[in-house]
Design a protein around this nucleic acid. Structure first.
Length: 441
RNA sequence: GCCCCCAUGGUGUAACGGUUAGCACGGGAGCCUUUCACGCUCCAGGCGGGAGUUCGAUUCUCCCUGGGGGUACCA
């Protein structure tokens, strides 16, 4: 088995393209096959070297590797020309100057469902001959059989007048030369498939097996795009998602295995079958990704999570704060807003200060807590808890009447990791300093 | 316009002629509780419509409707 995938090299790796890449990867890696990467770089506008490099980066971040060097479409010009010449000589293709208007006119004359047939000319673009009779059948692993009647098909242009080849021709030749056995790609290519099959047919070669994946939509059912929030894996990475969670989630968009939701990459490889992929388009739902990401985040070893958070935030020495925050975050990006106060001082949230510290008895409670904390020895979460609960007891109030003022004094807001752990992580000196600062205001 | 694909709760899916239509996210209620989360318990919510085939259709066929894709000398 030899599988190939070809994400659109437009700079950002679209989430739909990432899922396609993942399915290709699962198919090849799970089945002990080879995985080729093909790069459609003939569109100089979009497929710049920098854009191509970005795609590679995104794939690597996702953990999707491939075998050998990427196949660049543009670098195969000589081979394409050779095949073109052969088809021309054999009469399976012809030159034509017919324009889009000519094609339209032809249809106006012969009926809308009649495919365009041209007359050979001395020069012009090269079109592939399509028989009038018969049909081309696409056998798809996911969709079953789709039949395209030849009479409906236009004779496609396979090379421009200047000799440069077009996608549907180039991809067929490249797949043939690459010995590709499986092509797994988006459903937007289903209608292109008969054109490619016709190229194989003209060459007298056997085509690969195809599997067309349903497209990915945004929450509103429209094509997934930037206005839906994250639309590329680069954006997902920047939003603090873990590659293993993204992999798991993407695999589930269009495929499932019984009641299982959380599947490791190893399980995915073992259980995934293209034949089981759903036929209907899926919507990208970031809420579920967040949830799944939280699951993965929480089961990461502490040191590993710390390492990733330090890389993500560009800060060091996060360990202790990570330990007390990990139950409360779903993405790497959630960490700093929750625990940044440990390093950068209390957040500035006047509303929270007023609401908590402005309450009747709050300042007194805070002062009492300060006094208690000054005595704590050793200064760890357990002893801090004992001390603060002692204050609650002594004052005969509810726990939160003491804890919340302390929290706001230390964090500046009403949301933070557990209060005892937070106090302990800050240390006695820093905790007392912050409480004093709050008391002074 | 023409060609093609698709259709289970708000979302992702399971079921592959016979089940009280399962699981997960999200939503609601509650427990836990120092905030926010995590965790746990419970609840609401679905087979787009119509014909057929069949003893029996979510499952098979056809039509309609609704989505989507293609229709480039783009990829």
């Amino acid at each position: 088995m030899r599988v190939r995938f070809a994400p659109s090299p437009t700079g950002a790796l679209h989430i739909g393209g990432a899922r396609t890449a993942l399915y290709n990867w699962l198919l090849a890696r799970g089945g002990g096959g080879e995985l080729l990467l093909r790069v459609e770089d003939t569109d100089r506008e979009r497929s710049t070297p920098a854009n191509v490099e970005q795609i590679f980066d995104a794939l690597r971040w996702l953990g999707l590797d491939w075998d050998g060097d990427p196949v660049f479409q543009s670098k195969r010009a000589e081979r394409h020309e050779e095949v073109l010449t052969r088809l021309l000589e054999e009469g399976k293709a012809y030159r034509s100057n017919a324009t889009a208007e000519d094609v339209k006119a032809y249809k106006a004359q012969h009926g809308d469902e009649r495919g365009f047939r041209g007359e050979p000319e001395a020069d012009g673009a090269i079109r592939l001959r399509v028989p009038d009779e018969g049909e081309t059948v696409v056998e798809d692993l996911i969709r079953g059989t789709t039949t395209f009647r030849h009479s409906h098909l236009d004779e496609p242009v396979i090379a421009r007048a200047d000799g440069s080849v077009l996608y549907n021709f180039a991809v067929a030749v490249d797949d043939l030369d690459g010995g590709v056995t499986h092509v797994v790609r988006g459903e937007d290519h289903l209608s292109n498939t008969p054109k490619q099959l016709l190229v194989f047919e003209a060459l007298g070669e056997r085509p690969p097996v195809y599997a067309h994946l349903p497209l990915l939509h945004g929450p509103d059912g429209k094509k997934l795009s930037k206005r839906h929030g994250a639309a590329s894996v680069q954006e997902l990475r920047d939003a603090g998602y873990l590659p293993e969670a993204v992999r798991n989630y993407l695999a589930l968009l269009g495929w499932g295995h019984g009641d299982d939701t959380k599947l490791s990459t190893e399980e995915l490889q073992r259980l995934f079958r293209v034949e089981d992929v759903a036929r209907n388009p899926a919507r990208f739902d970031e809420q579920k990704l967040r949830w799944l990401n939280g699951l993965y985040l929480r089961e990461l070893p502490l040191e590993e999570l710390t390492r990733r958070l330090e890389e993500f935030t560009g800060r060091e020495g996060l360990g202790p704060a990570v330990a007390i925050s990990r139950e409360k975050i779903q993405t790497l990006a959630d960490f700093w807003p929750l625990a940044g106060f440990v390093f950068d001082g209390p957040a500035d949230d006047p509303e929270a200060r007023e609401r908590v510290l402005g309450r009747e008895g709050a300042r007194e409670a805070l002062a009492a807590a300060r006094a208690a904390l000054a005595e704590v020895e050793p200064f760890d979460p357990e002893t801090v808890e004992t001390a603060l609960r002692g204050v609650v007891e002594a004052r005969g109030v509810k726990p939160k009447d003491v804890f919340q003022p302390v929290r706001v004094a230390l964090a500046g807001t009403t949301v933070s990791p557990g209060i005892f752990e937070t106090v302990a992580v800050l240390g006695r000196d820093e905790a007392l300093r912050r409480i004093d600062a709050a008391l002074d205001r």
